[in-house]
Nucleic acid binder design. Structure first.
Length: 555
RNA sequence: GCGCCCGUAGCUCAGUUGGAUAGAGCGCAUGCCUCCGGAGCAUGAGGCCACAGGUUCGAAUCCUGUCGGGCGUACCA
């Protein structure tokens, strides 16, 4: 990576000596070109500056490269190409050196420390306990967990948090739904309301209550005994946590909205807003003067019934996050919450807080299809596929990979029949297979008397397949840092598939040509190639680890 | 009506923040192992990057408009 800095410095030097200064702060772009014929790194600087200094870009590029002072031990070749690109080819020594670095760093390879242990919170899932987690929640759960993993790997001090509310109207309806099922189980003929929770799990909870309490609650309304609601909540929450654990997702903090009331944080927010003239009364309700904060309409924060709307606790909650010292606060929401967060940010601004610490990531919905049928998901109507059902069907690794494979801003089309029938052709197996295959070849080498931990002469690695593979391995830290920095986990699977392809190609070469076999009579090449295998295995494992996906030794 | 997201191969999706000849997986066609894992490798067919303008050396990417789909636009969360 210092290699890149050295080249940028050389370019900067050349520009200085030509008396070219770009006054607007413009970083010099130096990135790997798409095609390998164009070298390892390329810059477009000559094309960008050409018009400013009134020169033809190619000519300017020529002038620049004659002024470069680069160690040939680092950059073996520089050329002007295309419309004025400057392409750099790295000396293989740089690659060999990097390869050794991977093996030394092991499970730390790809990790970085630019997060500076910044106190970071990732809030996700945050589903109220009204039913089992669905495929829709799954996308968010996996995204949130993986973003947390990426941030941790880049040196952030990460807290995973789950925010929930077990007090509102939803929970009352839930409790009453259970009560109705309970009465039905006791043989009462009561009609189950259409807009109540229809799911089978409600019956299960009711059965549980019958078992525990018999018919002793048959004359109790939902407001007279907390039993229906509390039992439902505790069973459902347990269920949610079991599902999350199954996906290897663990939260550090469960934050209950209720506590915001108990500690009077809600009241204080209203008071403070009033003092600043940013809240006012109208029609018996309390309004947030959002128009004074560049939003298009004012919003109710306390209803005329005296109950707050979701906005108020959300503002108080985010204020509390900042008060707890978080310097980076990541909220992961589904597209249905798109309208709510500007009010929350405006509220924070109104309270004098730095809302730029809050990053709101919106993921689009999962549209579920079965063949060509589109299924509308709704917890209330019991029209959903649970995450557990999905994992039963395709397994945890496939489930996680499926959600991570695509960018969160794109709508995810989930074809159930396809997921079931093609599960063993999922690209996740392709990546895992490469890892297992390496384990196997390392074992094979040991069986033949080789010690894979002996350091070989890396300079013997020089076929196209070997060099390409090393270059991809060395790109891993950049990919991880970019993925973390942009909150885009899907870059990791894309990278891993590419890496797996490159590895398979490398090992396959030995099938076509004996002199390219990894394990052979030639001790020197064998030791060198085993190092390449080991380094690849490390990167595959580290990458899969970041995704929360297993990296089996055997499949 | 207004706001956000999306429109790229038959299907599902990438596209390194504006770069060189637009990619992968699945599906389709054709090849490749007596020995390191065939859950693999190679080759091929398949594209008006939704459409129309604009910005510049250069646009799938940025701007404007149109069409199509999703989600919002609550004194629901």
């Amino acid at each position: 990576m210092d290699v890149k800095d050295k080249i940028i410095k050389a370019i900067q030097h050349a520009l200085d000596s030509l008396q070219i200064f770009s006054d607007d702060f413009m970083p010099i772009d130096l990135s790997p070109p798409k095609q390998k014929e164009h070298g390892d790194l390329a810059t477009n600087i000559a094309m960008i500056l050409a018009s400013k200094v009134k020169k033809n870009p190619r000519q300017l590029a020529q002038e620049l490269i004659t002024r470069f002072d680069l160690d040939p031990g680092i950059v073996s070749h520089v050329e002007v190409a295309g419309a004025g690109f400057i392409n750099f080819t790295l000396n293989h020594q740089v690659l060999y050196h990097g390869l050794l670095g991977i093996i030394e760093s092991r499970e730390k390879y790809g990790h970085a420390d630019w997060g500076n242990q910044k106190k970071t919170q990732v809030e996700f899932v945050s589903a109220n306990p009204t039913g089992p987690l669905t495929i829709g929640h799954g996308r968010q759960a996996v995204l949130g967990d993986t973003i947390a993993r990426l941030l941790k790997a880049t040196g952030h001090n990460v807290t995973r948090e789950y925010y929930f509310n077990d007090a509102g109207r939803q929970m009352r309806v839930l409790g009453d739904s259970v009560r109705y099922r309970y009465l039905q189980l006791l043989g009462k003929s009561v009609e189950f309301p259409d807009d109540y929770y229809q799911g089978e799990y409600i019956r299960d909870i009711a059965r549980h209550i019958v078992k525990e309490k018999g018919n002793s609650l048959q004359d109790q309304g939902v407001d007279e005994t907390p039993c229906f609601r509390d039992t439902a909540e505790s069973i459902i929450f347990q269920d949610i946590n079991t599902t999350l654990k199954r996906m290897d997702i663990h939260f550090d903090v469960y934050y209950n909205e209720k506590s915001l009331y108990e500690t009077e944080k809600i009241d204080r927010v209203i008071q403070e807003l009033r003092e600043k003239g940013l809240a006012y009364d109208l029609d018996g309700a309390v309004w947030l003067k959002a128009t004074a904060l560049d939003l298009d309409q004012d919003r109710v924060i306390v209803k005329s019934t005296g109950e707050p709307t979701y906005r108020l606790p959300d503002i108080a909650y985010h204020k509390d996050k900042i008060d707890r010292g978080f310097e980076l606060i990541i909220d992961i929401f589904g597209a249905d919450h798109i309208a709510t967060y500007p009010d929350v940010l405006a509220g924070l601004k109104a309270l004098g807080y730095d809302h730029s610490k809050v990053k709101v990531l919106i993921h689009q919905f999962v549209t579920l299809t079965e063949g060509k049928e589109k299924i509308k998901m709704s917890t209330r109507k019991a029209n959903f596929v649970t995450l557990d059902e999905l994992m039963d069907e395709v397994g945890v690794d496939v489930t996680r990979y499926f959600f991570l494979n695509r960018s969160m801003s794109s709508h995810l089309n989930f074809d159930l029949t396809l997921a079931k029938t093609q599960s063993d052709e999922n690209p996740v197996y392709y990546v895992q297979y490469a890892h297992a295959r390496i384990s196997s070849i390392l074992q094979h080498a040991r069986d033949r008397g080789y010690d894979p931990d002996i350091q070989g002469d890396t300079a013997l690695l020089k076929t196209n397949e070997e060099i390409d593979l090393i270059k991809i391995l060395l790109d891993f830290p950049r990919v991880v840092s970019d993925a973390a920095n942009q909150y885009e986990p899907h870059r990791i699977p894309a990278y891993l598939e590419n890496l797996a392809t490159s590895y398979h190609r490398f090992q396959h070469a030995g099938k076509m040509d004996d002199s390219l076999r990894v394990v052979s009579e030639n001790k020197e090449t064998t030791h060198a190639r085993l190092m390449l295998c080991k380094a690849t295995k490390i990167v595959l494992a580290n990458g899969l680890e970041l995704l929360g996906i297993s990296h089996p030794e055997k499949m």
